[in-house]
């Protein structure tokens, strides 16, 4: 049998909060998904669209009201004893993860997950050092208290703690919230490098359309508890009007290119980063191109 290329699937996944009370609310409504192995996935959607609720199903923090979550083809709730294993295989990094740092040293904090997995000391050591390097924490910081680090370093230490378990899927909920532009881009590049190196699947929940455009291959779009689409990033941003109507936007530069195209200029679709826009404008200028008509 051919091994399926998808690592995670959901079948009619539905989750209802406060069932049987006046506050009953379906937060995830019949979602069917197939997430590939070795992929950088962006997750976008308005506040309250069900993104976080959906993510919490992927490592079994929430149990579906109905429907199934399959990890590598197996229902994660089929055998409750295996749930612990699921949480090692699907790592979840919450918003502001630095609030969860607790150990005496950065080293111990990063080693906590691998230790719980029962890895050997040698393996733990390798994992801690490798992960610290990937996320940009210098070795000398590892013996310090995590509370003595700067904001950006604390955030990295917390993320490293989950990365060190080498989950097959790493989910990050707004990892860049509150970081300045440079810190943001730096951290996102490191997360991408981690993804490429480990060939795992990384899911990045973000409110920044610019980040989603620049750093992801596929986008999962939630809207009012339903899956709006799961598709290649360019294909999603092509649906400008629909995205705007559900409280999302396209990156500023994509909007400019979109307007120019509507005015009849012969610019290609699928431009959503500044570099792509530069190249497109340059090539149009070289062609001596003005209005298409």
């Amino acid at each position: 049998m051919v091994k399926p290329l998808s690592i995670l699937e959901t079948e009619e996944l539905t989750y209802t909060y406060s069932t049987g009370t006046p506050f009953e609310k379906t937060a995830v409504d019949h979602v069917n998904l197939k997430i590939e192995k070795n992929c950088m996935v962006g997750v976008i959607g308005h506040t309250g669209s069900g993104k976080s609720t959906l993510m919490q199903h992927f490592n079994g923090l929430l149990r579906p009201t109905s429907g199934r979550v399959l990890l590598d083809g197996e229902d994660i709730w089929a055998d409750k004893k295996k749930l612990r294993d699921v949480r090692f295989r699907v790592g979840l990094v919450f918003q502001y993860p630095e609030y969860q740092l607790f150990e005496e040293t950065v080293w111990k904090d990063i080693a906590f997950g691998p230790k719980n997995m029962g890895l050997s000391d040698a393996e733990i050591r390798t994992r801690v050092l490798e992960t610290a390097e990937m996320i940009g924490l210098e070795e000398e910081l590892l013996e310090r208290s995590p509370f003595a680090l700067s904001g950006g370093q604390k955030r990295r230490a917390a993320i490293a703690g989950v990365m060190a378990m080498r989950p097959e899927i790493l989910i990050l909920d707004e990892p860049c919230a509150g970081l300045d532009p440079k810190g943001r881009n730096h951290l996102l590049r490191q997360i991408c490098d981690y993804q490429k190196k480990t060939k795992s699947t990384v899911m990045l929940v973000s409110h920044s359309m610019e980040d989603a455009a620049a750093y992801t291959e596929k986008l999962l779009v939630m809207n009012q508890a339903k899956l709006f689409c799961y598709d290649d990033t360019p294909a999603v941003f092509r649906r400008t009007e629909e995205l705007c109507s559900m409280g999302l936007r396209i990156p500023q530069i994509a909007g400019v290119m979109h307007t120019l195209r509507q005015k009849g200029y012969d610019l290609p679709e699928d431009i959503y980063t500044v570099e792509q826009a530069r190249d497109a404008v340059l090539s149009l200028l070289r062609k001596g191109g003005g209005a298409a008509c």
């Binding site: 532009p181 440079k182 500023q252 400019v256 500044v274 826009a277 530069r278």
Partner: peptide, 15 residues
């Protein structure tokens, strides 16, 4: 200094 400019400003700069 770790900041950025709006995307449209950056495009003009790159051009």
């Amino acid at each position: 200094v770790g900041l950025d400019v709006p995307q449209v400003t950056e495009l003009a700069h790159l051009l």
